[in-house]
Structures are given as structure tokens and as C-alpha cells.
Amino acid sequence: MPNQKADPGPELEIVHLLRAVAVELGLHNARFANQNDMHPTDVRALIALMDAARAGTEMTTGRLGGALGLNSAGTTALVDRLERAGQVRRVRSEGDRRKVVVEVDQRAVALGQAFFGPLIESAVGLLQGYDERELAAIRGFLDGVREAAAEG
């Protein structure tokens, strides 16, 4: 009997497509890091800091290290490097002046917008073609995959 491949079904095709998207986004992030003399972890840190700012959450070095899977020394070196490059700054917490938080500098935001802006605009344009029900389904799927990946 000839070796026939079973039909993977639309679900597995979508999972494979998601993997391909993740690979392409990783390569895109690596190009950004390379063009700006950054380590890929620097890019991940800036993304984590911008996500926290969008959520209205302060990010201490401890929280940042936890989000990136770094130890204390590695996180300090990362923040020192980004601070020297003018990408982030350490500031006192609004709610507790004893606490130091890390914020993304506007220069880093502008650099990111210049590089990632066209990709973001394309993604937003694609999403504008879907209705609210479809957007909810896409959001639910992506949230579920993100949570599953975070669980490891």
C-alpha cells in the first residue's frame, strides 16, 4: 500500500501557519536587533516594558527579569545596557517613591515605530476586514495559544 499522508485538517494547518508567522516575526525582531546593535533579549525587554506601559502597570527590574526569565544580575546588566543606549530610564514609582521602575524612553518608541510601524499597519489593515465576532474568535485563539505557550 502506498504511503499516504492523512489530511491534517484545517486546525493543524492553522497551527502550522501560526508557527510560520512566529518564525517570521522572530526573524523580523532579529533584523531590528541587528540593525540597532541590540541583543534579541533587549528587544524582548523593550516589548515587555511597552506592554506594561500600555496596561498602566509599572515595571520594576525584578518584574522585568521574571517576564524575561533572567536572574537579578542578568536583568541589571540588561537594564544598564539599555539605559546607556538611551532606550530606557530608571525612575521613582508614582505610588511608592522608594521603588524604582524602568520605563521605555521615547527614543526607543520612535525607533520601534519606524521599524515595526509598517508591519503593524499591515496587520491592523488585515484585521479591519473582520467583523466583531470574527475578531473575538481571533483574539480568543491567540490568547489561548499564548497561555498554552506560557505554561510551557
Rank of each mutant, 00 (worst) to 15 (best):
N34C: 11
N34S: 13
D37Q: 12
D37A: 11
H39D: 01
P40A: 06
T41M: 03
T41Y: 00
D42F: 01
D42Q: 07
V43T: 05
R44V: 00
A45C: 06
L46P: 05
A48F: 00
A48L: 04
A48D: 04
L49M: 09
M50W: 01
M50E: 07
A52C: 09
A53E: 15
A53M: 08
A53I: 11
A55C: 03
M59T: 13
T61H: 00
R63F: 05
G65M: 02
G65A: 00
G65F: 02
G66R: 08
A67R: 09
L68I: 03
L68P: 07
L70K: 03
N71H: 10
S72C: 06
S72H: 11
A73K: 08
G74Y: 02
T75P: 08
T75W: 01
T76Q: 06
T76A: 12
A77P: 07
A77N: 07
L78N: 00
L78Y: 00
V79N: 03
D80R: 12
L82F: 02
E83R: 10
E83A: 09
R84D: 09
G86F: 04
G86A: 04
G86E: 11
Q87G: 10
Q87C: 13
V88S: 01
V88M: 08
V88R: 01
V88C: 12
V88T: 13
R89K: 15
R92G: 12
R92P: 09
S93T: 12
E94R: 14
E94H: 15
G95N: 14
R97E: 05
R97W: 13
R98W: 05
V100D: 06
V101L: 05
V102Q: 01
V102M: 00
E103I: 11
D105C: 10
Q106K: 14
R107D: 11
A108R: 07
V109S: 04
L111K: 15
Q113I: 09
F115Q: 04
F115M: 01
F115E: 03
F116N: 03
F116G: 06
F116S: 10
I120N: 10
S122K: 15
V124I: 15
G125K: 06
G125Q: 13
L126D: 14
G129R: 10
E132Y: 10
R133V: 15
L135F: 13
A136Q: 10
A136Y: 05
A137C: 10
R139Y: 11
R139C: 14
R139G: 13
G140K: 03
F141T: 11
F141I: 07
L142N: 14
